[in-house]
């Protein structure tokens, strides 16, 4: 039976969940994963994975520089800026 560690997942996904949310999430993930568990009935031994339904290879562009957008346009949506930099609160490692 799958038993996802909701605390750990929330931390990986950078989602602050309240205790009530965590509880609800646990139950819902459990129900969904129980349903998903039916995949185990299907034998996929030797079956290649499909990451794109329409197979394509070698899509590349030539190495040509194109004009950038001005810093003003790139910073227009910034929640906080200082000069032409994006500003973020104190970085702490976890």
């Amino acid at each position: 039976m799958p038993d996802p560690n909701v605390e750990h997942l929330a931390r990986l996904a950078r989602l602050d969940l309240s205790e009530a949310e965590k509880e609800r999430m646990r139950a819902q993930l459990d129900a969904i994963l129980t349903y998903i568990d039916k995949l185990r009935q299907l034998d996929t031994e030797g079956v290649e994975p499909t990451s794109h339904a329409i197979p394509m290879v070698n899509v590349m562009r030539e190495d040509e520089a194109r004009p950038c957008l001005p810093a003003g346009a790139m910073l227009a949506n910034a929640p906080e800026r200082e000069g032409d930099f994006f500003r973020v609160p104190k970085i702490i490692e976890e």
Partner: peptide, 24 residues
């Protein structure tokens, strides 16, 4: 030492004004 970035056409120039060598 490519002219443009790995996945977009922005130039790879070094030492320019902040956020002046970017695109969406």
């Amino acid at each position: 030492l490519t002219r443009s970035k790995m996945f977009c056409g922005c130039p790879t120039a070094f030492g320019r004004a902040p956020n002046s060598q970017t695109c969406p």
